[in-house]
Structures are given as C-alpha cells and as structure tokens.
Design a protein around this nucleic acid. Structure first.
Lengths: 242, 242
DNA sequence: GCAAAATCTGCGGGATCCCGCAAGACAGAT
DNA sequence: ATCTGTCTTGCGGGATCCCGCAGATTTTGC
C-alpha cells in the first residue's frame, strides 16, 4: 500500500509522514509532493489510490489537483487536511467529489488521534470522515436559512470576477433582467443595504463591490476560489471560439 | 533576555521555540501565544522587547497586533515570520513600522540558518533583516514602474470595501471628479480594460469589480488587508459622530 | 390535473459610474 | 518670470447598474 502526501509546508509534511507511518503500518511507501502540480504528476505516475492533500498551496491548489486526479481515477481516496474550514473550501471540495468516492476533511488543528483515526477510516475502510467543524459549515451552507443556493453562489462568483450583467447573462443563457433578479436576492442575503454615515441621512454602499467584500469577509469566497473561477472563466471564453 | 513567540500553528510554534533557543543562548525565557490577541496581552504584561510574529492568524492577525504593540512601545523589536510575501502583507508591515525601529521579515520557507541569523541580527544587533524575496516585492511596489502610489493603493482599498465614489470623496476630502480620476489611473495600472468574448466585438469587464478581482489575484490585497481596512472604516465612521 | 409558488422576461426610469474636455492651482526646473 | 508636469475640480453625456411593476413560463405540492 502506498500513500501520497501533497503539502507545501516542510514541517507539516514530515509531521504527516510520521502520522501515516504510525497509523498505517501496512503502508510500505510514502511519497511526498510539495505542491499540487507535482502531486498530480506523482499520482498519475504511481496510480496512487491514497492521498493526503493540503488545500492552499502555491503553484496549484489542492482542489484543482484533486479535481484532475479524481477525473482520471474517481475511486481515489483523498483526505483533505487544511488549516481552515472556510465555506469557500468546503463548497469547493463537495463540488468535485465524485459519486460514492471516499474522502475526508480534517483540520490541521485536530488532535493527533483524530488525524490517525481519519487516515485509517478513509484509506482502510473507505469511509467518509468530515471534521465536526467542517460539517457545521457544510450544514449551514446547505440549510436554506441564511444559506446560499447554487445559483446564488454562481452569480456571486461572477461578480467577484468582475463580469458585467450582460456577460453573466450570456454565460448562463439568461436574460439581463433575470441576472439582476438574482443579484437582488444576493444583495438581500448578504445584507448589503445598510446605511453608512448616518449623520446626514444619505449613504449607501456600492452594492456590487460591497457584496464581494462581505462575501470575502464571511469566507464565502477566498483567494483559491477566485483562482479556480478565473481559470473556469478563461476556459469558457476559449471554448466559445470553436 | 526574553522572547515572545506569537504563532497559531503548534508545529511552527515549537519549531520557532527550538530555533530561538539554539540561536540565542542568552535568552532565558521564551513565551508563547497562539494568536494576536493573547500575544498583545503577554507583550504588555511582560514588557516584551523581542517578538517573533506570524502574520495570518485568526482572532487577530499579526499586523494588527504589531501595530498596537508598537504604539505602546515603539522600540520593540519584531521579527515577522510569514508563509507568503504578498504585497498586501509587505505594505501592511512597512506602513506600521515606527521611525528607526528594528524589525525583520523572513519567510517560513527560509532555511534554518537564515532564520537563526535573522534572530541574532534583529534582537542582538538591532538591525533590520528583510528576506530577499520580500525585498523584491518591496522594491517593485515602490518603483513607479508598475508600482502603486500610496493614494492609488488607498482608493483600491476603498472600492474593495464597497464604498461609492461619493463616500470615498467624503472620506478623503476630495471632489467626486478627483476620485474618479484616481480610479481611472488605477484601472489603467491594473490593466482592466481588456476585452472579453471578442467574437462579436462587444465585451468589457465591470471595471470596478474587476479591479478588485485583479488586485486580489495579484496579492495586492488579501483577506487580512480587507479585515484591517474594514476596521479602519468603522473607526472613521464612529469618529465622524463626535 | 390544477392551483400556488417560484422563476424568467420585457419595459421604464432614477442613480451611479466612467470618462473626455477644459480651466485653475501648485511645485519644481530652466 | 516662465514653462512644464502633476493634481484638482466642474460640466456634460453615454453606459451601466439597480429595481418596481406586470405578464409569461416553469416548478412544486396536493
């Protein structure tokens, strides 16, 4: 049995290495990659079936790497090991996990034992293990109380990328007005209508930009989500030509 | 001699602890804090004169903590130890360092020796030590070729927060038109005028939102910068009432 | 199968944004 | 003193955004 570790921080990498060795004595080879790009390469080359993956790496983040790996071999077991439980990450992961695949999401702040237990559960038992805190975010994002629909999320991404209403309409095959309707919902949910500078009555935010700001501060989107979205956009733009 | 370590990751914290012990035998007490808030508290309580500070912590990031610490005792020596050399961080740091203070900025990817050397240089010799890569970013941001003025940077922050032109004008005591002029410069420098969807000619970005997106992707601003800016904004809003 | 609810769409209009043009203010150089 | 470059401000106008209204279409629930 082999395990591939994809993690850019050397300290964390060696810690992971030790944890894998301790939790999985049946593992006889541990590979290491220091970013998503070489991680993909190693996974392809060794047909890795067991991967521990950091999110937030330079050169190629964990979600992108996992996406291409899963596209080639959907039965790969991947444990995501991240510092944060940002909704952007959680959404990003659950968006790419294939039907019936075994995966996990545990935080770096979790205890030694939790990590080792997760390693065994996922790699040996093919079970899904989601950290409690992450699970909370996942629930909240799905629960429609103060949660965001898939469409709302998409339009959020689009304005974060700086697309105009017209572009968004074209991209999703909608009319201009429909896009604006969705925007209105979004503004409502992000609570972007608050007044500012109340001393002389008038003072609003620029709704569009404010929405992005609030979404960033609430961790609905983050750098890596933006990066992925930009890549998707360019792909779509390229595809339109053919 | 005492050293205070402010770092949220336990692994990195203990690594730092060891490095400090090894590099500074004359140090007889090493304090540790797991975020900016308790870091501030410990610094105040122990009158710490030597601090190693992570940027990017939850609860209170390194720059905010450093700002209040330096406000109280401007001769404190602080070594910033960070994963990234984002321009947002570099600007954030050099914005708050007091006149003539000794400080350093080294990356976590630096070698053991570099870290230890920096520790000695800053804490014992009161010298400034800036990592090469960080220095590069600093230079580029100052060099007016493809670099950003202080005013341009400020207006970038303002639109990232979601302020309207009118609000920005009021905040900086400018006319509406001047704000828009600055915006134009900004758009120019961020190269935001590119066409998209060229197949039928028409296709632009929403300049304002796109500018923020590009700035994020170029690491000119990031989560922590936005967080600080939001705090500043609220402070300003509060101050206007009195 | 039908009514209720949600979503999509066009129209119209007020507010804001983006920006060309031109006149004044100010600093530094020759 | 003059000139040049940068920064500021006002005016005007076209494009875009934001959104109320109302009818059409789709989805949902029973």
């Amino acid at each position: 049995m082999e395990v591939l570790i994809v993690e850019d921080d050397p300290l964390h990498r060696s810690y992971l290495h030790d944890a894998v060795r301790a939790a999985l004595p049946e593992c006889d080879l541990v590979l290491e990659a220091e970013n998503g790009k070489v991680g993909e390469g190693l996974a392809r080359q060794h047909h890795s079936a067991h991967i521990v993956m950091d999110l937030q790496m330079s050169e190629r983040n964990g979600i992108e790497a996992a996406r291409t790996i899963w596209k080639e071999r959907p039965d790969t077991r991947i444990l995501f090991w991240s510092n944060y439980a940002d909704e952007a990450y959680v959404r990003g992961v659950s968006r790419i996990v294939p039907e019936g695949a075994a995966y996990g999401y545990v935080l770096k702040s979790a205890s030694d034992d939790r990590l080792k237990l997760a390693l065994r559960s996922i790699f040996m038992e093919s079970q899904c293990v989601i950290d409690r805190e992450v699970r909370g975010v996942q629930q909240k994002s799905l629960g429609h109380v103060n949660g965001f629909t898939e469409v709302e999320y998409e339009i959020l991404i689009d304005i974060a990328l700086g697309l105009t209403d017209r572009m968004i309409a074209r991209r999703h095959n909608l009319s201009l007005r429909s896009v604006q309707n969705r925007l209105q919902q979004l503004y409502e949910k992000l609570d972007v209508y608050q007044r500012i500078g109340e001393d002389d009555g008038e003072g609003r935010y620029n709704l569009r930009s404010r929405a992005v700001a609030v979404a960033l501060m609430r961790k609905l989107i983050n750098y890596s989500a933006l990066e992925r979205a930009e890549a998707d956009l360019n792909e779509w733009l390229g595809g339109k030509h053919s």
